[in-house]
Design a protein around this nucleic acid. Structure first.
Lengths: 150, 150
DNA sequence: TTGCTCCTCACGTCACGTGAGGTGGC
DNA sequence: TTGCTCCTCACGTCACGTGAGGTGGC
């Protein structure tokens, strides 16, 4: 048999621990169709994840935690990405330059949209941090007054 | 009757619209004890909010949205703040310098804790933004190649 | 063989959403 | 008086949490 370099695979518990979620969360996301369908798994058999699956799951968690998106809107985003992945398959089979451009053009707005959301979040976080530092400064000024007086 | 400068007050709908939440959310937070008890309101009467109430509510929403805290842990934080507010009442009645210092010392760790959480969030957001910009750059490089070739 | 992790239901919970039916203030 | 917003239940929903009971791989 051919002894090709086998990619490492993980079970659900290891993935959950690594990403800081529970196994229930991962199963729920699978239920919603957020992860690749894993169509060849027999009922009752253990779930198996590769590095690419884990990266994808982490992407989902980022969108949820950092941007506060609902799972429904993440599904929408993922479907758009999936359509892109489908195009990417064609890519391997020598598409024309015209095709390649279309594929690249389809990817860009998705990333730009996410960048926009991230930037908005960064701004509100900066405002929050600034407010906290002001409060802290006022408190520390008060203290130094008492230290000087006492 | 004395014609003292009345502070503006708002009804729940106006507050909700201003903060971008529903009225249900505000009522739910009141139920959990997250807002000042509003003990003098008669059953069935309209809720009334002042600027300070709105600021407090916005603080709660920040902790929820930007830091992803559960309402339960926000309750804990709010209780600590409340204890501080209780101390603050004494403040008005001429506390000793020693008392003042204790009050100031109690406030600081709360703010420092929040600042810590905000900073962590900012770092993860920066990582996310960097990753997105890398992807974007790769895509744009690909496109300029096609533009040059086509 | 013994643990340990995994599996599938399935009900519980948190943070609200969404009417139903009724009352109050410009 | 007429809308409009408010009120209080109370059941529904989203995103999981938490066992119950059973099977599979180092």
């Amino acid at each position: 048999m051919t002894e090709q370099a086998q990619e490492r695979s993980f079970r659900i518990g290891a993935v959950a621990a690594r990403l800081g979620v529970t196994t229930r969360t991962i199963r729920y996301y699978e239920e919603l169709g957020l992860l690749g369908s894993d169509s060849q798994r027999c009922k009752g058999a253990h779930r198996v994840y590769r590095e690419s699956d884990i990266a994808h799951l982490q992407e989902v968690l980022r969108l949820r935690d950092l941007l506060g998106l609902s799972l429904e809107s993440i599904v929408d985003l993922a479907e758009a990405e999936e359509a892109r992945a489908a195009l990417r398959l064609e890519w391997e089979h020598g598409p024309s330059d015209e095709d390649r451009r279309r594929i690249v053009d389809a990817a860009e707005p998705l990333i730009l949209r996410q960048l926009e959301l991230v930037t908005t979040r960064q701004k509100t976080l900066n405002t929050f941090a600034r407010d906290l530092r002001r409060r802290l400064k006022r408190i520390q000024e008060l203290r130094s007054e008492y230290d000087a007086a006492g």
